[in-house]
């Protein structure tokens, strides 16, 4: 076991936990979603560091799956949840 790499992973985990505040604070939906995206990248990094730290190569497969599906929820968000329109004044217009 390599404690040094685990401590680096700990630093990244703390940074992710700090990024959570952005989900709570918003203000726009996209801000929250992008904070979750931060988890994707940081999560991959943490997993890679853990894989090295604990000498578990299988963890790299987990990181691969993470990286593969990282874009999915953001794409779903843009295509499904965030498609309306607001004008600069904040009044909502129907699109049809």
């Amino acid at each position: 076991m390599n404690t040094f790499y685990v401590s680096l992973a700990l630093i990244l985990l703390l940074s992710v936990a700090a990024g959570l505040l952005r989900i709570l604070r918003g203000p726009t939906a996209a801000d929250r979603m992008m904070a979750a995206q931060l988890f994707g990248t940081c999560g991959v990094a943490i997993l890679l560091l853990l894989a090295r730290g604990f000498d578990a190569l299988i963890v790299e497969d987990v990181a691969l799956v993470f990286a593969l599906l990282a874009a999915l929820s953001t794409v779903a968000f843009v295509r499904r949840a965030w498609t309306g329109k607001i004008t600069p004044k904040g009044r909502r217009h129907d699109h049809r």
């Binding site: 992008m34 691969l64 990282a70």
Partner: peptide
């Protein structure tokens, strides 16, 4: 491959958002 995938995911989602 992992790095490449993360790059693609970030670039695409940044553009889309």
């Amino acid at each position: 491959l992992i790095w490449f995938l993360v790059l693609m995911a970030s670039a695409t989602s940044c553009h889309l958002v």
